[in-house]
Design a protein around this nucleic acid. Structure first.
Length: 498
RNA sequence: GGUGGGUUCGUAUAACGGCUAGUACUCAAGAUUUUCAUUCUUGCAAUAGGAGUUCGAUUCUCCUACCCACUACCA
């Protein structure tokens, strides 16, 4: 049997967004599940849309997620099909395009951008849509309508011609998609796509894609649903070359959380969640947040992405990468677009945070503490982390949850003070606090006297933390000590009016 | 407009012709707790509409509606 080889082939036109990461992930899982290769190829055939830094961003993102290519751009190991950057492969495409011309499957087109623009505008004014195919190509300037000498002349004198695919007439292309099943399309609705551009000596996506997939011995093409409309062309290209084609699987789109449409950069900014794996600063200086910088764990991110459009068929939701590889299969991938749910994303991270060891979380929390000007002993911090980890979604929550274990409150929440800082409460609280040596004793003291536990405790909590919610008094006192507790209470008495 | 794809609770999904349509997130209520959070329990909530095939349809077929993608010398 043929070896499984898949590729992720992004275009470096900007940061890779989470939909792209998911496509890469599914390719990776499929490859690993089948003991095959996962290849990273960069499709930079559009010189006008190149964005500096985008390629590096793609590599870093995949690396952060643990989606490691076996072959391709950024891989140190053996790269038998190098180069994997299409701009570096430009020399190989022209011959293939010309092979199609010689076989009668393609032709030279000399229409200028202006001429095509005019034809489109004309058609539109008549209520039609211009389509470059069998119905119009006979009236346009190309090697099918011009004489051999004219063609030769134009080929050498001009540098703005293209090679177009000659879309056959009256055929129904029969296709099969692993996810969507059998699909048929009539060629009369398709157009003569440009395959190669003389102007920059580069192929367009369609040609480069087919040639490279063939040369790199790709067995399965797993890509986004937006490519489904060009599948007939790709089928026809394989047929014209006489090549065996790979199997295709078109993944459902990732949709925005509310409303309709593809998930886009704007949605994240608007709704307060990242759309990109990593923070991205565009060449213009525009900043987009990333999952990594927002405090997500890479394995949580991968887990939530995996479950957007795929399900294991069981009720398991938490998967390590190895478990995903084991469980993954394309026939469990859904057909309909998946709306991204930020709440569920947070839930995943919360689950992953709980699974992290106290030691690891402590290492992550230490820099946060220093950033707040706190220097604390690691062993002490680790005890605190153990106490608060299940209250947090992100490591960054730790500070908000437990800052008062590191420093005294400067101010008090008005509403809580109004509710609990009352003379009778303060009297009881002061007595209980000063008459006992530990939180445990204090609790006994209050109970014996049948004082209202809630009122007294919240009064103390207000003095210790500045608000009426937070950790148990016993835990707080264990960390700050009795002296500090008494001091904080004294200060509250000075500052708060009854 | 044309072509293709899609449609189960608000969201992600399960149920490969046969249970009371299941689970998770969110939300609500209750229990626990000195507060908050956690935890536990319970609850709200769906097969887009219409025909057909069938003993029986969420599942198969057709029509309608709605949504999405594509329709570049972009990928």
């Amino acid at each position: 049997m043929k070896r499984t080889r898949v590729r992720f082939a992004p275009s470096p036109t900007g940061p890779l967004h989470m939909g792209g990461v998911r496509t890469a992930l599914y390719n990776y899982l499929f490859a690993k599940k089948n003991g095959g290769d996962f290849i990273l190829r960069i499709e930079d055939t559009d010189s006008h849309r190149f964005v500096p830094g985008a390629e590096q961003y793609i590599i870093e993102s995949l690396n952060w997620c643990g989606i490691i290519p076996d072959e391709g751009v950024g891989v140190d190991g053996p790269n038998p099909h190098a180069p994997y950057r299409q701009s570096e492969r430009r020399g190989i495409y022209r011959q293939y395009a010309e092979q199609l011309v010689n076989g009668g499957f393609a032709y030279y087109a000399f229409d200028t951008a202006e001429e095509l623009e005019k034809a489109r505008a004309e058609a539109e004014s008549e209520g039609r849509t211009f389509i470059y195919n069998a119905t119009t190509r006979g009236k346009l300037r190309n090697s099918l309508t011009l004489s051999g000498e004219e063609v030769q002349e134009l080929l050498t004198s001009r540098t703005d011609w293209t090679i177009r695919f000659r879309m056959p007439e009256g055929r129904t292309v029969q296709m099969d998609d692993i996810i969507r099943g059998h699909i048929e399309v009539d060629t009369s609705t398709l157009d003569d796509k440009v395959l190669w551009k003389r102007a920059d000596e580069l192929p367009t996506y369609h040609l480069a894609n087919i040639v490279d997939d063939h040369l790199m011995e790709i067995s399965h093409v797993i890509r986004g649903e937006e490519w489904l409309p060009s599948l007939p062309l790709h089928y026809l290209l394989y047929e014209s070359f006489g090549w065996e084609r790979p199997l295709f699987a078109h993944l459902p789109l990732l949709l925005k959380p509310v409303g309709n449409g593809k998930l886009s950069k704007r949605d994240g900014d608007k709704m307060g969640f990242p759309v990109f794996p990593l923070k991205w600063v565009s060449p213009e200086g525009e900043v987009s947040r990333g999952y990594r910088e927002d405090g997500y764990f890479p394995d949580a991110f991968v887990n939530l992405l995996a479950l957007l459009g795929w399900n294991p068929g069981t009720e398991q939701e938490i998967f390590s990468m190895d478990e995903l590889i084991e469980a993954f299969s394309l026939d469990k991938v859904g057909k309909s677009g998946a709306k991204f749910n930020p709440d569920k994303a947070k839930w995943f991270n919360k689950e992953y945070l709980r699974m992290r060891s106290d030691q690891e979380l402590t290492e992550l929390f230490m820099p946060v503490l220093s950033a707040h000007g706190i220097s604390a002993e690691k062993s002490r911090v680790q005890e605190i982390v153990a106490l608060i980890k299940e209250r947090a979604t992100f490591v960054s929550d730790f500070w908000d949850i437990a800052w008062y274990l590191f420093k005294a409150p400067e101010e008090y929440v008005q509403k809580d003070a109004a509710k609990f800082w009352k003379s009778e409460n303060v009297l009881m609280a002061r007595e209980a606090l000063s008459a006992t040596a530990s939180a445990h004793e204090m609790e006994e003291y209050i109970r014996e006297r049948e004082w209202p536990m809630g009122k007294v405790m919240n009064c103390i909590r207000l003095a210790l933390t500045g608000s009426s919610n937070g950790l148990g008094i016993a835990d707080i006192m264990r960390f700050i000590g009795r002296e500090e507790a008494l001091e904080r209470f004294r200060r509250a008495e000075e500052r708060l009016i009854i």
